[in-house]
Amino acid sequence: MELGPALAGLAVAVMCGVLSPLVVVRRLAFIGQGVSHAAFGGIGLAVVLGLSATDDALATFLVVAAFCVASALLIGVLTRRLRAMRPNAAASEDTVIGIVLVATMALGALLLTMAPDQVDGGADSHAGHVHAEGDDHSGHDHSEHADHVHTPEIEAILFGSLSRVTMVDAGIAWGAALGTLGIMWLMRRQLVFWSFDELGALTFGVDVSRVRLVMLAILGVVVVVTMKLSGVILATALLVLPGAVAMRINRGLAGVLAISVATAIGATAFGIATYPMTGTAPGPLIALALVVFWVLACAVERVSGPGPASGG
């Protein structure tokens, strides 16, 4: 197991593990999906700007993160306008997310197909690792084989890739993890109230629209870091399943957070550890491991019941 992917995976797992119960109780899965698809648009933008995902990791991260956070905030601002008309208007959020999702995804697809040469430039050093380990691709002709290289590159974006994860990425992941967890710690009381009862929190004086926007921004950052490992499509797996698993076996906040983080770490470790054997993209392995954990958690809940929310 290489150090870069392992360190990045740990950061991603901790971040997603803490965020996941919130995503589950506040039903942010679809927003998470929307934001992660926005990342595709962000990647398209980064490619058009001439950035390489490996050589300009930090710059690419910043561009994609900015794009994702902007998309998340756009969803937040648009739904806030709906709420200003009717405070309990939750259903219309769906439509807003759906629109932002397809718009950003389509933009990304368009930008990526319009700029195949740049895609190759960023991809040729690692696309080969994923699909033809050991095969030397460095000498091939870009203009002639653009489509061949292009597809694995997009596949890596969609389903994740480990060979793309460097120590720089690990550093970015840890920076993002510490930043987002720090902000969540500072807002923990408001977050807990908001996640339990949004309208109640609003009446009791919690600045709910600020909490929502900060959470959406955090979601945007987390998704960008996560998708490096799991891919755009399956980033939602790490945002939804660890919390869903934990809430089936425990009813206390500390217990749920601990189980959620442990689940995320377990699944990520499985995806990274099996990579050398399978050579497949890690995203599907992580997602399937999480689904297996979830099935087990359902069985545990059925057998033993949830137990009290002791500890307070």
Binding site: F193, G205, R248, N250, G312
Partner: peptide, 23 residues
Amino acid sequence: FEPRFPASARDVVAMGASARVPG
């Protein structure tokens, strides 16, 4: 609310007391 929400009755009452206390 989510029926599996990880909070005790007391945790919910405490939300009222600490709604506006910064972290």
